Amino acid sequence: MEYAEISAEDNASTVRQFVLLGFSDLPNLQGFLFGMFSIVYLIILIGNSFIIVITRIDPALQKPMYFFLANFSSLEICYVSVTLPRILYNIGTQNRNISKLACATQTCFFLMLGATECFLLAVMSYDRYVAICNPLHYPLVMNPTKCTQLAAGSWLGGIPVQIGQTCQIFSLHFCSSYQINHFFCDLPPILKLACGDTSINELSVFLVAILFAAVPFMLILASYTKIIATILRLPTATGRAKAFSTCSSHLLVVFLFFGSATVTYLRPKSTHSPGTDKLLSLLYTIVTPMFNPLIYSLRNKDVIAALRKLLLRK
């Protein structure tokens, strides 16, 4: 296994590369892990691409809900592509070195796309809120221009802050330990390598997590509180079931993503353990994007109907 050679006399400012330990503590499972992650990556690419294509070509899916779903599937492909190809490269070559610049770049894109996911999930909950609580105003409120603006804001909103946070973290001095006990360059394990007092940086990470994760999550909860109250007032059980079915898939994805991400980023550095961090990170970086197409397609009658029409046409 090739590791970076950094001499003892090198000080923190001369560190040029790190080592992503990843799953090196499982030497007998490297082949299995490579095969498993390859299959997972293909499932994510194919499943989310299918949703993008089917929402574009089927006239019945030309609605704001599916416009945001296509954006979300595009995001999932980008999001997982920041981490999984690097994991496959590290396992396949057993070369776990990563330059400081490449590590910072990976961290920056991961944070920006993570912020986009939080915003998009909040926008999708707002779309469901308007559709169920104000159905008569839905075409007016969620017009094409408004949808495009909301999607663009979700994609671009986190870029300045996350670039700033990445620059702040990677301008720290790093101690003699340069091994990142994780499978990608995430903030908690990188902060563990920093010398001296990092309490200000931890506070910065906490505040950004509050801004980009906790606030959207609270908005989602507020939306669903009103949505559920409206659904419960519907006169028929059929109407209640239909209204809830349009929201349940999104709600499941929300809890999968926010649950694991919040525990990771809102804990103090002293309580982080490599095993727990890796497990939680797998949930929101790989498992959730893999299950999203299944959750949205198998639980959505419109998507199933569009799939049937596509297959019959073929």
Rank of each mutant, 00 (worst) to 15 (best):
M1S: 09
M1Y: 06
E2W: 09
Y3Q: 10
Y3R: 12
A4R: 09
V15D: 05
V15R: 12
L20C: 07
G22W: 02
F23Y: 09
Q30R: 14
F34G: 05
G35H: 05
G35L: 07
M36E: 03
I44D: 03
S49E: 04
I51C: 04
I54H: 01
T55D: 00
I57D: 07
A60Y: 09
Q62F: 07
E76D: 09
I77W: 02
C78E: 07
Y79W: 08
P85D: 04
Y89R: 13
Y89L: 12
G92W: 09
N95I: 14
R96I: 07
N97I: 15
I98M: 10
S99T: 14
S99L: 04
Q106V: 00
C108K: 05
F110M: 08
G114W: 01
T116K: 15
F119W: 13
L120A: 03
L120F: 02
L121F: 06
Y129C: 04
V130S: 03
A131N: 11
I132H: 01
N134S: 14
N134F: 11
Y138N: 11
V141F: 09
M142N: 12
N143V: 03
K146T: 13
S154K: 09
W155A: 11
I163P: 00
G164Y: 05
Q165I: 14
Q168G: 14
Q168N: 15
L172F: 00
L172G: 02
S177Y: 01
Y178W: 04
Q179T: 04
I180M: 01
I180F: 00
N181V: 06
C185R: 01
L191H: 00
K192L: 06
L193P: 08
C195V: 02
T198S: 06
N201V: 14
E202W: 07
V205E: 10
V208Y: 15
V208H: 14
A213L: 15
A214Y: 14
P216H: 02
P216N: 06
P216Y: 05
I227L: 02
I227N: 02
A229G: 01
T230N: 09
L232Q: 12
R233K: 13
L234F: 04
L234C: 07
T238L: 12
G239Q: 15
F244D: 06
S245D: 14
C247A: 12
H250F: 08
V254T: 05
F255N: 10
F258I: 01
G259W: 02
G259T: 01
G259F: 03
S260W: 06
V263I: 15
T264M: 13
L266F: 15
R267D: 07
P268A: 04
H272C: 01
I286Y: 00
T288R: 05
M290R: 00
M290L: 06
L294D: 06
L298V: 10
R299E: 12
N300I: 07
N300D: 15
I304H: 10
L307M: 12
K309D: 11
K314E: 05
